[in-house]
Amino acid sequence: EADPRLIESLSQMLSMGFSDEGGWLTRLLQTKNYDIGAALDTIQY
């Protein structure tokens, strides 16, 4: 079963217009401990 923190973070990022095609966003959020800010910083640079 998916981590509730992942579901919450992923749904927030999907609502911002990101896609999780191929699961890349799920993996990114997992490596950033479900921190949306850290994930966005990684995507920006």
Score class of each variant (00 low, 15 high):
residue 41 D to S: 11
residue 11 S to T: 11
residue 4 P to F: 11
residue 35 D to G: 02
residue 31 T to R: 14
residue 18 F to N: 00
residue 17 G to V: 01
residue 26 T to M: 04
residue 43 I to R: 01
residue 5 R to C: 08
residue 16 M to C: 09
residue 1 E to T: 14
residue 12 Q to N: 09
residue 23 G to Q: 07
residue 36 I to Q: 03
residue 24 W to L: 05
residue 18 F to Y: 13
residue 29 L to H: 01
residue 2 A to G: 12
residue 14 L to V: 10
residue 8 E to M: 11
residue 12 Q to V: 15
residue 25 L to N: 00
residue 30 Q to A: 10
residue 39 A to P: 02
residue 37 G to M: 15
residue 26 T to A: 08
residue 16 M to F: 09
residue 43 I to K: 00
residue 35 D to C: 07
residue 43 I to Q: 02
residue 36 I to V: 15
residue 40 L to Q: 04
residue 36 I to R: 02
residue 6 L to E: 05
residue 23 G to L: 08
residue 29 L to A: 00
residue 24 W to R: 05
residue 1 E to Q: 14
residue 44 Q to R: 15
residue 45 Y to L: 15
residue 14 L to P: 01
residue 2 A to E: 11
residue 13 M to V: 03
residue 42 T to H: 15
residue 38 A to Y: 05
residue 23 G to Y: 07
residue 12 Q to G: 06
residue 13 M to W: 02
residue 31 T to E: 15
residue 42 T to K: 08
residue 15 S to T: 10
residue 10 L to T: 02
residue 45 Y to M: 15
residue 30 Q to S: 08
residue 20 D to R: 00
residue 11 S to K: 13
residue 45 Y to V: 15
residue 10 L to Y: 03
residue 10 L to W: 03
residue 33 N to D: 10
residue 1 E to D: 14
residue 42 T to Q: 14
residue 44 Q to A: 11
residue 27 R to E: 10
residue 16 M to D: 03
residue 31 T to G: 10
residue 33 N to E: 10
residue 17 G to Q: 02
residue 21 E to F: 09
residue 6 L to I: 06
residue 44 Q to I: 12
residue 45 Y to H: 15
residue 11 S to I: 10
residue 25 L to Y: 00
residue 17 G to M: 04
residue 6 L to S: 04
residue 35 D to V: 05
residue 38 A to R: 07
residue 21 E to I: 09
residue 31 T to A: 15
residue 25 L to G: 00
residue 20 D to Q: 03
residue 37 G to Y: 14
residue 35 D to E: 08
residue 13 M to I: 06
residue 33 N to P: 02
residue 2 A to F: 12
residue 17 G to A: 03
residue 5 R to W: 05
residue 19 S to W: 07
residue 26 T to L: 04
residue 38 A to T: 07
residue 16 M to Y: 08
residue 42 T to W: 15
residue 41 D to F: 12
residue 7 I to C: 10
residue 14 L to G: 06
residue 32 K to A: 10
residue 27 R to Q: 10
residue 44 Q to W: 15
residue 32 K to V: 15
residue 34 Y to V: 01
residue 3 D to Y: 06
residue 11 S to E: 13
residue 28 L to A: 02
residue 40 L to F: 06
residue 40 L to I: 10
residue 30 Q to V: 15
residue 19 S to E: 11
residue 19 S to Y: 09
residue 25 L to F: 01
residue 19 S to N: 15
residue 16 M to W: 09
residue 38 A to P: 03
residue 10 L to M: 07
residue 32 K to M: 13
residue 1 E to H: 12
residue 23 G to V: 01
residue 39 A to S: 06
residue 30 Q to E: 13
residue 16 M to I: 06
residue 20 D to T: 01
residue 9 S to G: 10
residue 32 K to Y: 10
residue 42 T to P: 00
residue 20 D to E: 03
residue 29 L to S: 01
residue 9 S to A: 14
residue 25 L to H: 00
residue 27 R to P: 02
residue 8 E to S: 13
residue 2 A to W: 12
residue 13 M to D: 02
residue 25 L to T: 00
residue 43 I to E: 02
residue 41 D to A: 14
residue 26 T to K: 05
residue 30 Q to H: 11
residue 5 R to H: 07
residue 32 K to S: 11
residue 18 F to V: 03
residue 34 Y to C: 08
residue 24 W to T: 04
residue 9 S to R: 05
residue 10 L to D: 00
residue 18 F to P: 00
residue 13 M to Y: 01
residue 8 E to V: 12
residue 34 Y to D: 01
residue 2 A to V: 13
residue 38 A to H: 07
residue 27 R to D: 08
residue 41 D to E: 14
residue 4 P to Q: 10
residue 7 I to A: 13
residue 37 G to R: 11
residue 29 L to E: 01
residue 39 A to Y: 03
residue 9 S to N: 04
residue 5 R to P: 04
residue 29 L to W: 00
residue 18 F to D: 01
residue 29 L to G: 00
residue 40 L to S: 03
residue 40 L to E: 02
residue 45 Y to G: 15
residue 34 Y to N: 08
residue 18 F to W: 09
residue 33 N to F: 09
residue 34 Y to I: 02
residue 20 D to A: 02
residue 29 L to I: 05
residue 16 M to E: 04
residue 34 Y to L: 05
residue 9 S to W: 06
residue 42 T to M: 11
residue 3 D to M: 05
residue 38 A to F: 05
residue 34 Y to A: 04
residue 7 I to E: 11
residue 4 P to C: 08
residue 43 I to T: 02
residue 43 I to P: 04
residue 2 A to T: 13
residue 13 M to A: 03
residue 19 S to C: 11
residue 32 K to Q: 09
residue 12 Q to E: 12
residue 3 D to S: 08
residue 44 Q to G: 11
residue 15 S to V: 11
residue 25 L to V: 06
residue 5 R to L: 09
residue 24 W to I: 05
residue 32 K to G: 05
residue 26 T to D: 03
residue 33 N to W: 06
residue 38 A to S: 09
residue 32 K to T: 14
residue 41 D to G: 07
residue 28 L to W: 02
residue 11 S to Q: 12
residue 34 Y to Q: 03
residue 44 Q to H: 15
residue 11 S to A: 13
residue 16 M to A: 05
residue 27 R to Y: 07
residue 8 E to C: 09
residue 36 I to G: 01
residue 1 E to R: 12
residue 11 S to G: 12
residue 33 N to A: 09
residue 41 D to T: 12
residue 15 S to W: 05
residue 3 D to K: 05
residue 27 R to G: 07
residue 10 L to S: 00
residue 45 Y to N: 15
residue 37 G to Q: 15
residue 12 Q to A: 13
residue 23 G to K: 06
residue 18 F to S: 00
residue 27 R to A: 11
residue 5 R to A: 08
residue 8 E to Q: 12
residue 45 Y to P: 15
residue 27 R to M: 09
residue 3 D to N: 11
residue 14 L to E: 09
residue 19 S to H: 12
residue 22 G to A: 07
residue 6 L to P: 03
residue 45 Y to K: 15
residue 30 Q to N: 08
residue 35 D to L: 04
residue 9 S to H: 04
residue 22 G to E: 09
residue 9 S to T: 11
residue 38 A to W: 05
residue 17 G to D: 02
residue 8 E to A: 13
residue 16 M to K: 07
residue 7 I to V: 14
residue 31 T to S: 15
residue 29 L to Y: 00
residue 30 Q to K: 13
residue 6 L to V: 05
residue 33 N to K: 09
residue 33 N to M: 10
residue 26 T to P: 02
residue 8 E to N: 11
residue 12 Q to R: 14
residue 1 E to C: 10
residue 29 L to D: 01
residue 22 G to S: 09
residue 26 T to S: 12
residue 15 S to R: 13
residue 25 L to S: 00
residue 44 Q to N: 12
residue 34 Y to W: 06
residue 36 I to L: 08
residue 38 A to V: 08
residue 37 G to F: 13
residue 8 E to W: 10
residue 6 L to D: 02
residue 35 D to M: 04
residue 16 M to P: 02
residue 13 M to H: 01
residue 27 R to F: 06
residue 19 S to F: 09
residue 35 D to A: 04
residue 36 I to S: 03
residue 30 Q to M: 14
residue 7 I to H: 10
residue 19 S to V: 11
residue 40 L to Y: 07
residue 16 M to H: 06
residue 40 L to D: 02
residue 36 I to N: 02
residue 24 W to A: 05
residue 10 L to F: 04
residue 27 R to N: 09
residue 29 L to N: 00
residue 32 K to F: 10
residue 29 L to P: 01
residue 24 W to E: 05
residue 22 G to T: 09
residue 18 F to C: 06
residue 28 L to D: 01
residue 18 F to G: 01
residue 22 G to Q: 08
residue 26 T to F: 01
residue 4 P to D: 10
residue 34 Y to R: 01
residue 38 A to I: 08
residue 38 A to E: 10
residue 6 L to N: 03
residue 39 A to T: 13
residue 22 G to R: 06
residue 14 L to N: 08
residue 39 A to N: 01
residue 13 M to S: 01
residue 34 Y to E: 02
residue 45 Y to D: 15
residue 23 G to F: 07
residue 28 L to K: 00
residue 8 E to G: 09
residue 36 I to W: 07
residue 6 L to Q: 05
residue 3 D to L: 06
residue 41 D to N: 12
residue 31 T to Y: 12
residue 32 K to R: 07
residue 3 D to T: 07
residue 45 Y to W: 08
residue 33 N to G: 10
residue 5 R to T: 05
residue 39 A to C: 09
residue 11 S to N: 14
residue 14 L to R: 11
residue 28 L to Q: 00
residue 37 G to C: 14
residue 11 S to M: 12
residue 5 R to G: 06
residue 31 T to D: 15
residue 26 T to V: 05
residue 8 E to I: 12
residue 6 L to F: 07
residue 36 I to P: 04
residue 7 I to K: 13
residue 19 S to D: 14
residue 24 W to V: 05
residue 20 D to C: 04
residue 28 L to E: 02
residue 13 M to K: 00
residue 30 Q to F: 07
residue 40 L to C: 07
residue 20 D to V: 02
residue 5 R to Q: 09
residue 20 D to W: 01
residue 32 K to D: 03
residue 10 L to I: 08
residue 5 R to F: 06
residue 35 D to T: 03
residue 4 P to Y: 10
residue 25 L to R: 00
residue 7 I to L: 14
residue 12 Q to D: 07
residue 2 A to Q: 14
residue 35 D to K: 03
residue 39 A to F: 04
residue 15 S to K: 13
residue 28 L to H: 02
residue 8 E to H: 12
residue 21 E to D: 12
residue 3 D to A: 05
residue 31 T to N: 13
residue 14 L to F: 11
residue 22 G to W: 06
residue 35 D to Q: 06
residue 24 W to C: 09
residue 30 Q to R: 10
residue 7 I to M: 14
residue 5 R to Y: 07
residue 22 G to F: 08
residue 28 L to V: 07
residue 27 R to K: 12
residue 31 T to I: 15
residue 2 A to L: 13
residue 14 L to K: 12
residue 28 L to F: 03
residue 14 L to A: 11
residue 29 L to T: 00
residue 38 A to Q: 09
residue 10 L to K: 03
residue 9 S to F: 09
residue 39 A to W: 03
residue 20 D to G: 02
residue 36 I to T: 07
residue 26 T to Y: 03
residue 20 D to N: 12
residue 14 L to I: 13
residue 44 Q to L: 15
residue 43 I to A: 03
residue 38 A to G: 06
residue 42 T to L: 10
residue 24 W to Y: 08
residue 45 Y to E: 15
residue 11 S to C: 13
residue 1 E to M: 13
residue 31 T to V: 12
residue 42 T to C: 15
residue 13 M to P: 00
residue 30 Q to P: 03
residue 1 E to W: 11
residue 32 K to C: 15
residue 19 S to G: 09
residue 40 L to A: 03
residue 4 P to W: 10
residue 3 D to G: 06
residue 27 R to S: 09
residue 29 L to M: 04
residue 13 M to E: 01
residue 26 T to H: 04
residue 17 G to E: 02
residue 1 E to P: 14
residue 43 I to W: 04
residue 32 K to E: 09
residue 8 E to Y: 10
residue 25 L to M: 05
residue 31 T to P: 00
residue 9 S to K: 06
residue 2 A to K: 13
residue 20 D to M: 00
residue 10 L to C: 04
residue 41 D to W: 09
residue 9 S to Y: 06
residue 15 S to N: 13
residue 15 S to C: 13
residue 33 N to H: 10
residue 12 Q to K: 15
residue 8 E to R: 10
